[in-house]
Structures are given as structure tokens and as C-alpha cells.
Amino acid sequence: MNVTEMCAARREELLGMWVERFISSYPLQSAGFMRTSTDPFANPVGQTTRASLGVLFDAVIGLDASPRQVKAALDDLIRLRAVQDFTPSQAVGPLFLLKDILRTALLDPDSAEPKGRMGQSGREELPRARPSAGEILDGCFEAEARLDSLALLALDLYAADRERIFRMRVDEVKRAQSSLLRWAQRQGLSPEGSGNSCSGEGNA
């Protein structure tokens, strides 16, 4: 058994801990609701977080992952957190907390993988040999390096999201008076209408 398999075997537990770290970034009174409601439309923040982290978790522990899917999942997560009143570090920070979770799970000799799982054949599988400490350490470093790549990608996405917001703010102002700008241009006025104002305000 290698590190990827060790983590995959405890996926629900470890992923749950990671999701929990994200949800703890929300207020106490709200976090309970986010944990319990599983309807993606009634609890969109909780469920988006959970679904995205599921994909990212598999990628970090070294399962095969399509880059497109991983990026989409990270995009969903970061797009959400980029507008949620967090500082940038709060928005992406909980990504890093998976490191602690994996280290504790893998390096703590007491937290071995669950024994005697039922295999797909229906027969009880024998616990497979635990990798050596060196192998675990190597696997851990690899997982952490993959997580670092995700964090870098998250930085790109976060910055792009913020830039999009500011561009939208400008576009909205233009859109709100599109036909007025066109009118002003035909009158030979600058869009600012500095000369001859057509608005009631200017004539007031």
C-alpha cells in the first residue's frame, strides 16, 4: 500500500476534516446549517465547497485527475471565496490546512488505515503492508507539492476574480446609460457631457 492508497482508503474522514476547516471560516451560527444541509440549491456555499474539495483532495493525494476538472473545481471554490468578505489569505488559506491533516494521518503510527475492510470481491481483505517511514515521508512531500501547485493556481484565480469584479463595476456604469452615451456622442459631446448637459441635474 502506498501513500495514495492510504489516503484514498480514508478519503471520507480526511476530506471531511478539510471541509470542516473551510466551514469553520464562516460564523458560528451559520456553520451548523452549512454542515447539515446537503441540497445543492438550498445550501449552495456548503455544497460547492464540499464538491470542489472532493475533486481537489483526489488530485492532491495523487489519484489520476484531469487538469481541466481540477482547475474547474478550484475555480468554483475560489470564485466563491473571492467575493465573501475574506482577506485574500483567509480566502485561499484553508487550502494549506490539508497538509496538517495528511501529515497527522500518515505519520502518526497510531492512526493506521482501517483494518479488515471488505474488498470488492466481498471477502475480507487482509491488511496490506504499511509502507516504510521513508516512503510515507516521500509520499507526503509529493502530496504537499501538489497542494502547493494548487495554491499557486488559486492565486491566479483569485487575482483574476478580483480583476473581473472591478471590470464589471466599470462595465455596469457604461451599460446603465448606453443609449445616453450614444446620444451624447451624436451631439458631439464627450461621454462625460462636460459642455452641454442633457440631464435635468445639469439644468437645475
Partner: peptide
């Protein structure tokens, strides 16, 4: 204030408003 004073939310005066509709 614009609706109260002029009639529409941007405070566009009637002649300009009519011209804008002509563009459309």
C-alpha cells in the same frame, strides 16, 4: 429625485429622450 423632477430615473429631458428613442 430625477423621476420626481423630470420623469425618468436619469433625469433625461424630453427632447433628448425622444431623440434616444429615434436612435432605437
Amino acid at each position: 429625485s430625477n423621476c420626481n423632477r423630470t420623469g425618468n430615473h436619469l433625469g433625461i429631458q424630453p427632447h433628448a429622450m425622444k431623440e434616444i428613442v429615434e436612435f432605437l
